[in-house]
């Protein structure tokens, strides 16, 4: 049994004031090895919570997570995480950041240096190897984060809005990089994003989540990720289906946001 399976995952946060938030309710998913899935949804629909549960940082209140036949109970090097920002180690150089995982495993120096060199080539940061990470631009920092995650050779890569803090142009380049890495490494990737276009481009599968309680609202299988590998993403966006999907999903999320607003207005 390989792949990642989420079986009826529910998550309830009990608040100090006695009330509780149902952040996730009966979320079930099956991801085959090498699948690229993007997750969309309005703010507060439980995307981060879901990813944190898969990463093992949070324990679900009910349900079961199975990866390659064993149950997930906590964080592990088999599931790598890429954060929006602030997760690099400022006290380490680019090289040390990328080599962090192998160092923790006690990998021999030479072997580690080989991996780090290779990954820095892949993400195009060979010239910045000895630089401090805080000297790099936001886009470069995210490349370091990607390389650091890959250096550990995880089975699953989890990304929580990894490109959310980047400017539009850098973001486009990084989207191409993510597609390239996905294809080259064959990793299972779950990517959370706020951008509908990004979700369409970076998802063989795309799930749209709905809030209160957080649940999977709709699921798509899309051809754009496959089309985008090694191609110009702007061309992909011109595909007629791309436009219609985008409008459809935008409308869906728009309605959800409206509904949330309406509810808060009634409540106040």
């Amino acid at each position: 049994m390989s792949g990642l399976a989420l079986q009826d995952i529910s998550m309830r946060f009990d608040l100090p004031n006695g009330s509780s938030v149902q952040a996730l309710e009966n979320v079930s998913l099956d991801l085959k090895p090498g699948e690229l899935m993007s997750v969309l949804g309005p703010s507060g629909c439980g995307k981060t919570t879901l990813l944190n549960i898969v990463a093992g940082f949070l324990a679900q209140t009910s349900g079961k997570l199975v990866l390659n036949g064993h149950e997930i109970t906590g964080p592990d090097a088999e599931r790598g995480m890429v954060f929006q920002k602030g997760a690099l180690f400022e006290w380490m150089s680019v090289r040390e950041n990328v080599g962090f995982g192998p160092s923790m495993k006690g990998m021999p120096r030479a072997e580690k240096a080989g991996i780090v060199d290779h990954l820095l080539d892949v993400v195009g940061l060979q010239d910045f190897k000895e630089k401090a990470v805080y000297e790099l631009s936001g886009g470069m920092q995210q490349r370091v984060a990607l390389a650091r995650c890959l250096a550990n050779d995880p089975d699953v890569i989890l990304m929580d809005e990894p490109l959310g803090a980047l400017d539009a142009l850098t973001r486009e380049k990084m989207q191409s990089l993510v597609l390239k890495l996905w294809k080259e490494t064959g990793k299972t990737i779950i990517l959370i994003t706020h951008s509908v276009e990004e979700a369409l481009l970076l998802g063989e599968r795309l799930i749209v989540m709905a809030p209160r309680p957080g649940r999977i609202h709709k699921e798509y299988r899309l051809p754009f990720a496959e089309m985008g590998v090694g191609a110009d993403l702007r061309e992909v966006k011109k595909h007629p289906e791309f436009g219609s999907r985008r409008d459809e999903i935008l409308g869906m999320i728009w309605d959800m946001e409206e509904e949330i607003m309406g509810r808060t207005e009634v409540a106040s």
Binding site: G56, A77, M81, F83, G86, A87, M104, C149, N152
Partner: peptide, 20 residues
Amino acid sequence: SKVHAAYSLGASKWQIMRHV
């Protein structure tokens, strides 16, 4: 995020203490 990242990179508690 730094602590989470370190755990996901396979660091033990002591390694997180020492390196993060």
